[in-house]
């Protein structure tokens, strides 16, 4: 119980909410790294997944690579890149991208592959060209799965951006690293709670995005030919 009270006091301290070491600034850094990492990953993974899904080429390679990337221990990747490239934002982003690309790539690929053959047949049969089939049929139908992949990636990125503090950049991980260094348990817990909060907010954000981006005909259980 003492821990809870101390934690409360930690959050209640006005100094906690101002300056470069304050929660808003750290939160801002954390969101910035996460957003950057996620966007970079999406820029790489979505077009690649659309391509492999649409052409059916490289599907096996994609899945195998993604499997491999999934099994990689993130801190290993991060520390190795830091050793090679030095401390800074670039190695952090590399690690985040390595983490976020697989789920987005696999879900985009599977989302496009999963479009029913008869729908694709109808689209070509009506005279759509390849890119029209991709943009007017496959992409919109794959959006729900792509969003799920993005959400998985986002939650992992938010969690992993915490480690960024170990290689000398900011973010909520600073509280954890500094707390560990100073044997300040309260600070460490405060940082962890904030990370959890941000992760939950991210999940909620994607629930909202789903409402916004998924065509009503595709929502929950909506299926042609039922």
């Amino acid at each position: 119980m003492d821990i809870l009270i101390e934690l409360f006091a930690w959050f209640a301290d006005p100094a906690r909410w101002t300056g470069g070491g304050g929660v808003p600034a750290r939160m801002g850094e954390h969101v910035y790294y996460s957003l950057l990492g996620l966007l970079l990953s999406a820029v790489v993974a979505v077009p690649l997944g659309l391509f492999t899904g649409h052409t059916g080429r490289g599907g096996f390679l994609t899945t195998s690579l993604a499997n491999f990337a999934r099994a990689l221990p993130t801190i290993g990747v991060l520390f190795l890149i830091v050793l090679a490239a030095g401390i800074g934002l670039v190695p952090v982003l590399c690690a985040l991208v390595a983490l976020a690309v697989p789920p987005i790539l696999v879900n985009t690929h599977e989302g496009v592959r999963g479009v029913e053959p008869r729908l694709r047949d109808a689209a070509f049969g009506m005279g759509m060209r390849g890119h029209q089939v991709l943009l007017r049929l496959e992409l919109p139908v794959a959006v729900p799965l792509i969003l799920i992949g993005m959400r998985t990636a986002a939650v992992q990125v938010v969690a992993t951006a915490t480690i960024a503090a170990y290689v000398g950049v900011g973010g909520l991980g600073r509280y954890i690293v500094d707390g560990q260094a100073r044997q300040d348990l309260t600070m460490m817990l405060g940082g962890s709670v904030l990370v959890v909060l941000l992760a939950v907010l991210t999940t909620l954000l994607f629930a909202g995005l789903r409402r916004l981006l998924v065509a009503p005909g595709l929502r929950t259980g909506a299926v042609a030919g039922r």
Binding site: L119, M126, G127, L218
Partner: peptide, 22 residues
Amino acid sequence: PAALRRSIGYVIQQAGLFPHRT
């Protein structure tokens, strides 16, 4: 092919309607 197909109506089994369009 695309231009040809646009000039020919095509109906398939179970219609093949696009689920994301009205």
